[in-house]
Design a protein around this nucleic acid. Structure first.
Lengths: 294, 294, 294
DNA sequence: ATAGGTTTTGTCAAGCTTTTGTACAT
DNA sequence: ATGTACAAAAGCTTGACAAAACCTAT
């Protein structure tokens, strides 16, 4: 007998927010649930069934049709956790941190080789490099990492990421122009973002650190640019450039990235704020590119 | 059934920003998508299809006409992600194989460029070139690769690897003298080994294919050599040279590499056998040698 | 079918700035382009064709008659992309300048690929990159190069050079610690120097731009450093750091590089001045150091 | 450069089917 | 609880159409 068969259909309905009629219809049509029966024939559901119904509702809310939602649940049910093993990204990050802390460039390179061979660029960025960078930032703020370590790690990673970006100006996709705001030296997040949208078919024009706004504007005109992304780690840099940025935002699609790009600041100049993980934001920017075009 | 066939046309339309009518038109006219069908005939799309539609829109936005945009997608379809440098080494190797099989040298060079930009020389050797070479060898034994193909691939790769090794005689490190045994023409593994120990700080003296033992010995004396590495693909070559090799091994540190270098044979002449992957063996040789120098 | 036949005449016209009528006329009169056709008869152009039209316009702008310009292009026609590898360094530099001025990263990369395949790193630095950099600097001072161009070129080259330096921490040789003085952002000459001494068997620890002297010192102690090289483009940066530098020079072998490193200034702090071409200075430093080790 | 014809492509409509939540009778 | 019914919403196919872009030839 089913272990936790404790809910009658009325109770399941209340907890899940789905009418009893509909629950029966789902059972008949898609075999979504297979409740045990009481001696008198009443349906008895388990808590797993409740979870199943909730998943069903989630899928419906996300736009799937009932038949497909149910099919997804049936398929996913048996093999819940079929994850790829491989060296865990956490271990990789820890090893990377150790290598860079000890100024051991070859070892860091070799670790990155391994990771890049096993995973996509996206995955390495998301699971290894970006977490490592924020970790480094935090340690640095707490005074646990020396300036030397921070400089060394940045240089190694910058070279590596720029190497991955080789040829990113090539192709047919829309062009994104990337630069750091005046005074800003931290390029890594920006380069990561560039790699992520490169992987999504965009072309990249990269101007590097500490770039005058007027410079960006001129390059944008020269290159029929679809998107400009400017990055800054501190809000001050954004504020300092705000007046110059407004006209840019008027004539181009402009986004501000990096920890310095608060929502209000970006709104203030008519730009999109990219405050999160570069890979996530890349996904957002590229998929939201749609409506603008139609 | 298709794995991720979960979206009906309305939802695909919402997520992609393309009207259902147009989606159907693209399917009819260009075969852009080939959705599976529900039992009742409704189209069911996967998330990959969504990505495809987004790419289509990008191309349209960049000015291409629909027919051409669709044609591009059909052509690029299988390897869309393959354009990204970090693409898996397996894919890279397959593409390299294809390029070389078709005598397409520029493409092969460009693939190598990309790989070398993304990975270290060590990694490219280990994950791409050396596997490719053994694959080629096997195909050749099975009669699946023509002599012309094998020659072409060898000469392209030899040129490229020697290019990477340019200047490898320069510097302060210990010197390794590399040569193929008399009669032996296969240099690639030996060059790969040279690159690997060069990256570890050694200097290389390279004598090339089919080198008389006496020639090697004379060069070794002239150059204050720390290590001699001789390579052969078949054991016969080693046996044939054994008598001559013994005195060399007495006066220098001598290693025998390549598939022809069986452990017993090497022992027999007092040499070290390097039977494995060139990069691994390079690591072994240099780390065992390290203490002597530092 | 032609691989990259993706542009219809209207789009080609937009991208090239030449009217469709004129494009057709050029085709009829000079056979400038030979587009493939769609099933319905529309002309389909490749990206190479676009390049061709741009060249045509350049020739016209420079005063050539249309017929001559077209004839020129026809002769160069087949292999515009498949350039002659043996192009002289001067040509290579000019082409590199043109590519970078036009924000054409892929072309710049491909030029560098070709050069690096044909020459050693030393030679490419000496004959192509370093001359290009000083040329760029001069044009910049005369106001002939925009900030955008300078930024773009720097970013591309920096990424490329750092890519060449990948793994330069590996090996057995003596270690050189490289960094820019506080406030200094120009890294290219320093990286070039790093590559040059790397080719001579040294190991490199690279700390990047704008590095506090104290940071350098701490890293130097952590790494058993044989040589410290600090770089600055303006003498002010050296003067500003002079007091801090003296003790460093007392405990390590210290060199100052870049145009900011005048002989007297370096003498004043007890450092060696590297005022010349990075490759030449690398040779000087390594040969003077050689005897100590060998 | 213009004129007159063709191709391409996004959109719409008509008529019919499938899907799905809810309602009702047994 | 079960089984059937039903109507709204969403899809399907075929066919057609008009604006935009292109073609050739004058």
């Amino acid at each position: 007998m089913e272990a936790g068969a404790v809910l009658r259909i009325g109770e399941l309905s209340k907890r899940s927010g789905v009418s009893p009629e509909l629950l029966r219809a789902w059972e008949r049509r898609y075999g979504l649930l297979q409740p045990t029966r009481s001696p008198g024939g009443l349906r008895l559901y388990s808590l797993d069934d409740l979870e199943r119904v909730r998943m069903m509702r989630q899928h419906l809310a996300s736009g799937l049709a009932a038949a497909e939602a149910a099919a997804l649940l049936s398929r996913a049910a048996p093999g819940e956790a079929a994850r790829v093993p491989g060296a865990s990204p956490d271990e990789a990050r820890a090893e990377l941190a150790e290598a860079l802390d000890n100024f051991d460039e070859p070892r860091a390179q070799s670790l990155l080789d391994t990771q890049l061979a096993a995973l996509s660029v996206d995955a390495v960025l998301t699971d290894v490099l970006l977490p490592y960078l924020s970790e480094l930032g935090e340690r640095w703020e707490r005074g646990e990492a020396s300036v030397a370590q921070e400089h060394f790690a940045s240089s190694v990673l910058r070279g590596r990421l720029l190497g991955l970006g080789r040829g990113w100006g090539l192709g047919l996709g829309p062009l994104a122009l990337l630069a750091c705001l005046p005074g800003e030296q931290h390029e890594l997040g920006l380069i990561a973002f560039g790699l992520a949208i490169r992987a999504r078919g965009w072309r990249i024009g990269y101007l590097g650190s500490d770039t005058p706004v007027e410079t960006v504007e001129r390059a944008a005109r020269a290159l029929s640019t679809q998107l400009i992304v400017l990055s800054a780690v501190t809000p001050e840099r954004v504020r300092a450039a705000a007046a110059e940025l407004r006209p840019v935002a008027a004539s181009h699609r402009l986004a501000l990235g990096g920890r310095g790009a608060a929502e209000e600041l970006a709104d203030g100049v008519g730009a999109l704020a990219l405050t999160g993980d570069p890979v996530v934001e890349a996904e957002r920017v590229t998929s939201s590119h749609g409506p603008l075009v139609s």
